[in-house]
Amino acid sequence: MWTEFGSTTPPSSDTRWRIVGAAMRKHGYRPNALIETLHTVQETFGYLDEQALRFVAGALRVPLSQVYGVATFYHFFNLKPQGRHTCVICTGTACYIKGVPAILTAIEETYGIKPGETTSDGNISLVSARCLGSCGLAPAAVMDGDVVGKLTPLETVNRMRRWTK
């Protein structure tokens, strides 16, 4: 694959590239808009694939290795597609001492996935978060965008079962 540096032409006819283009234009295609642009790509496409990274590198004139280096430095960015459902388990201190390790074990025993992994059928992604800031609700998780608190291992797995029907 060859990257055209300085080109702002989207890599495909997918109309979602317009959103990415607009984000870069807002920042005047300045190289320092890299992280902001990657956020937009992830919001739009769900993850950062190689095509997108090359496009952003070219449009913002940031070296390829630097783009890849930034994308992998920050754990918020996904370089692989996520499952249809996402369970974000908080591993902050309050959640940890209130029993998160047992919840993670239960999920692993039921679905065979550890944080950062997706079930082989692509249905559920398990993600761990440093702290959701919902310490009052410990142990807490975000399940498909909804914060749920005061979880037990059984309840967590039961909630995830609703996704596998």
Partner: peptide, 27 residues
Amino acid sequence: HTWDLMGRGTSMRIISDMNEAWGDSET
């Protein structure tokens, strides 16, 4: 700027371009 660092902490590595084989580097 063919080389950069990817990842962080103990999983940090030097990479060429998009973490691809050095021989395939376009830069």
